[in-house]
Design a protein around this nucleic acid. Sequence first.
DNA 1: TATTGTTATACTCTATAACTATA
DNA 2: TATAGTTATAGAGTATAACAATA
Lengths: 140, 140
Amino acid sequence: MKIADALVRLTHLVQHEFADGSRRNGITPQQAQLLCLLIDGRVRMTQLSRLLHLEKSSLTGLVDRTAQRGLVERVADSSDRRACQIRLTRQGRQVANKVHDEIAGRLEQLARSLPLSERSQLGASVGQLLDAAAFPKTVE
Amino acid sequence: MKIADALVRLTHLVQHEFADGSRRNGITPQQAQLLCLLIDGRVRMTQLSRLLHLEKSSLTGLVDRTAQRGLVERVADSSDRRACQIRLTRQGRQVANKVHDEIAGRLEQLARSLPLSERSQLGASVGQLLDAAAFPKTVE
DNA sequence: TATTGTTATACTCTATAACTATA
DNA sequence: TATAGTTATAGAGTATAACAATA
């Protein structure tokens, strides 16, 4: 199997874990992804748009719906009156941590099917791939 | 960075490649995923449902829309009159191959940022992860 | 002028529940 | 009865284009 096909299948696996983990917690996968991005702190719409690979208008709707569920809120950006920052509510943080830990736990468990040395090699290789792609980091 | 977070970020990378590759070819990422699954031959609805992690009714709609674009078609299953098989049309095969090759090419290119030995180790580790997850194969 | 974000609109994706037809 | 697939419905996700407010 080509490496590309392996990566695509791995992606499907992770996506399915996200779908299941989100559903167990009563949110959509997109909302879960948003919540997880906000765990490390508030983020601007434009930056979220880049991280999630979404048009600004799509993000507006996603944030609206997630805010309606009481999980995130918009706060004014003191340095730019056009902008706002999105942050987790108290409830949103609970859900974000729970969803993240469940999904990460499941993935860590899968990784334990590899010997320790192979596992750390895998992490290093994936990290290098991400760097090569100049993929935006969650926290910057 | 934990291995789980690395895998999630890798997933985002692949998803973004899929989004871009699909768009360049005038289809949605979901339709692209469907087309790629059909490259190796016709597949039943129930099996597609499992591979794509979708409810049967969701799949019906996806197949409907993809068929309306002339990319797939339903054919009767000779062994079970309740069932149908989905297959690529001639045009669908062209699009499927093009989308697959573009995305796979981009991912292979990224993989070339790793030394050859590390690359093959990555493929082996990912394969083992997929086996550990008992993840459904594309072709069976 | 450029940037940040929203609104309006249309289409796509998805799940739930109820259904038909066949096994 | 169980399985394969569809229909009806409602909500969520997404992009495009046009817009308002601020930089």
